[in-house]
Structure formats: C-alpha cells, structure tokens
C-alpha cells in the first residue's frame, strides 16, 4: 500500500496544477478576451449604469413593475438573494406549500385587480428552483400588464409591446419554453419613462 503513496502524491499535485490552476485560469483568460460580457454575468445597463444581470431576477415589487416568480433564495423577507440561491424544497403534498400557493394566488388576483376565481398561472404562485428565475410565462406577464400600465400612467399598448420585446420563443423553435424576461422587461419600462 505504502508503495502507492509516492505516485498518488505526485500525480495529485501535478493534476491539480493542470486541471485546478492552469485550466480554470486559462479558460478565464480566453473567456475574458473573447466574451467579456457573457463571462462577467450579462449585465444590463439603465441610463448607462450597470443595473444587475439580465439572467438574475430582482425583487421587483409594487404597482409599477412586473413581478418575477416567488423566490425561496436567501432568508424570508430578503428573497431574491443572489448570494444564497435555492428552492423551497417543500414536497408536492406538503400542506404548508399548498396553503402558500393558495395565499399567493389570492394576493396575485388582488394586486392585479382580477375577479375571484380567475385562474392564476402556475409559475406566478410557485417558487423557482434557483430563487433567481428571471423569466415568467407570457400569460403571467399579460395578466400583470394592466396594473403596470395604470401604475405608470401609460396606455396599455406600449406596455404590451414591451412584453413582446422581452419575450423569447423556444430556442430554434424546439428547445425550452416561451418566456418573458422580467429584468429586460422592467429595464425596457424604465426606458419608456413615467
């Protein structure tokens, strides 16, 4: 057994140098030279200043913003914490989760002035896996549009146009799901003014 010690130590040291230092730093150098925007987190700018990543949800709240999906990241009261990603880990039959969903559905109808019994999109009342999901479903975005338009004193049409601009279809028509990026949508609204 002890005869194996030297090759084990030397091999681990050299492979650490190759795969743990040279490889990640080399990839960093190439990525920073070739694709700095992507490699640094796809930062969006508003009025010329960096305003977060297009890939990470922000805690948009109140009547003038489109709301992202509920978040279980971070601590309660400080959700959407990009330094502490994660989901709720509540099981599908857990009464606590089912009650929370019913409560969120009621709040969603109240906030958006929807009649009792209006069907609320599932993505609007469930927490995402990362707690940082930047996207919502197209139906969810359209249901929020009248509230946002009223909150900003805008007609509905430019708000709907902003939704269309922030909507992505399936990649190559095949992969993933059609969705609306809330960060880009709200950045577009901020540019609309009001």
């Amino acid at each position: 057994m002890i005869r194996q010690l030297r090759p084990a130590l030397v091999a681990l040291a050299l492979l650490t140098l190759a795969t743990g230092i040279v490889y990640p730093l080399g990839m960093t150098a190439v990525a920073q030279l070739a694709m700095p925007g992507r490699a640094d987190g796809s930062i969006v700018t508003v009025d010329g200043r960096p305003a977060g990543s297009a890939l990470l949800a922000q805690p948009f709240d109140g009547p003038t913003w489109f709301h992202p999906r509920p978040s279980a990241a971070g601590s309660p009261g400080a959700a959407y914490d990009a330094a502490a990603s994660g989901g709720s880990n509540l099981g599908p039959t857990n009464p606590e989760l089912l009650a929370t969903i019913a409560e969120r559905a009621g709040a969603y109808r109240r906030d958006n002035g929807l009649a009792d019994g209006t069907e609320v999109p599932i993505d609007a009342v469930t927490a995402s896996g990362s707690g940082l999901d930047p996207d919502i479903s197209p139906a969810n975005a359209r249901l929020q549009a009248p509230r946002v338009a009223a909150g900003r004193g805008l007609p509905l049409d430019p708000v709907l146009a902003a939704i269309d601009a922030a909507t992505r279809g399936r990649t190559a028509g095949v992969l993933g799901q059609p969705r609306v990026n809330v960060v880009e949508l709200n950045a577009g609204l901020a540019a609309l003014g009001a």
């Binding site: 989901g87 599908p92 989760l97 599932i122 995402s128 479903s137 197209p138 139906a139 799901q177 969705r179």
Partner: peptide, 18 residues
C-alpha cells in the same frame, strides 16, 4: 400550453426549462 411556458408542476422548476 405555450402561454404558460409549458405549464405543468412548477414548484422548484425554472421557467426557461419548464
């Protein structure tokens, strides 16, 4: 439906993957 980003059970699931 596509309007719901594929719908289904979404607790713990990301919209872009559905």
């Amino acid at each position: 439906t596509t309007e719901l980003a594929g719908g289904g059970w979404m607790e713990g699931t990301e919209t872009r993957f559905g």
